[in-house]
Computed example of a mutant assay.
Amino acid sequence: MSKSSPYLDSAPLAPGDTVRLIAPSGPTDEESLQRAIAQLESWGLRVVPGENIRARHPRVKYLAGTDAERRADLVDAWCDPDTDAVIALRGGFGAMRLLDGIDFDLMRRHMLRRDGRPKLLTGSSDITALHQAWEHHLGVATLFCPMVGNDPFKNSTVVPDEVASWLFHPWGGRELGFPAEASTEGTAAAEQTAATRPLSRAQTLVPGSARGRLGGGNLSLIAAGMGSPELIDVRERREHRGPSILMLEDVDEELYRLDNLMVQLVRGGWFTSADAVVLGSWEDCAPVHEVEALMIDYLGGLGIPIVSEMGFGHDPDAPSAPLGVDVTLKAEPGERPRLWVDHAGGQA
């Protein structure tokens, strides 16, 4: 099993901590930027925007500044001794373009905050490329979650509180995904949030139980990274890292495209280390039952548990998921599958 993260029994952040807000992928507008800053400040955090967060690439309209500008903001944010967390403003495209120019020895020397715990990286979608790199080069847990510059933070009644709960509370023992039923306990604000939060649609495609390190993210980004330094060892990972539970989700992909991406992962050996596969959301892709059938076609013969509709990814109310920590999956026949973070010391 992987080394336990300190965030299993201590909250990653507290009011007064410093977070660096960066745009490593696509550009944003001023309204979204100011809304993001206001959201983070409402949690009591000190927000330091990246120097190039408003930049635009001179030729490529889908990039927030040049590779050098975006990389500089990422490295400066991570290496700042006052940084407690690095928060991606939004996704889009471009994070993978930054990796080859990063000095990860430098990043490793600056990976601890002043209290000795590792700094936290947050984001999802295109930020999957950074999650993969942080796992491979730095060996730290990260948070796959909706991003403060995107629509869920503006439109969802549950995303801001759900993300905040992962930032300001310990992770150990916490169940992932949407709840099975609305909570009837807690503060009035918590009860109001629970009352409007979507309930679990999770279902078991292949039953079973598993424990392992949670990994994965956006299917397109993982496929694009096959053969890279971060994923070159996928066939040997289980041997030297232990078991893993792999998560997949995507957005705006036709079924034939998902098929092609799965071919790439299967042929590249990405599932060799998998002790279970957890499927998130497939927003604006093919109907869910068609995606599930495709996944069973590729993965059903592996002899491992497979569960669907856990919500991670691009669902408008998407829940968060900590990557690089040990989790337990129980997917018994006829029961709602459950996935939760193990406690420190490996206790389920």
Rank of each mutant, 00 (worst) to 15 (best):
W270N: 02
D252I: 07
P152D: 01
M96K: 15
L221Y: 15
W78S: 11
L74A: 09
I87R: 08
H136K: 13
T187D: 03
L176N: 00
R35H: 11
A88T: 10
A286K: 05
M247Q: 06
T157D: 13
V291E: 06
S273A: 14
L279K: 12
T128C: 06
G301M: 09
L13H: 07
G345C: 08
M147V: 02
S125V: 10
Y62S: 02
A344M: 07
L21A: 05
P12N: 07
A164W: 03
N150T: 13
G65I: 04
Y62D: 03
D29M: 02
K119I: 02
V251G: 00
Q34W: 12
G303S: 06
Q264W: 08
A286I: 07
S165W: 00
T122L: 08
S25R: 09
L258I: 09
A11M: 09
R108Q: 11
T18M: 12
T142P: 00
A223Q: 03
E162C: 11
A344R: 12
G217F: 01
A224P: 01
L121K: 12
G149W: 04
E51Q: 13
P337Q: 03
V288L: 15
V234Q: 02
H289Y: 14
A224T: 05
P24M: 08
A180N: 13
R174D: 02
T157G: 13
T328K: 06
Q132G: 10
P287R: 13
M226N: 09
T157I: 13
T328Q: 08
A318E: 01
S2M: 11
L74C: 12
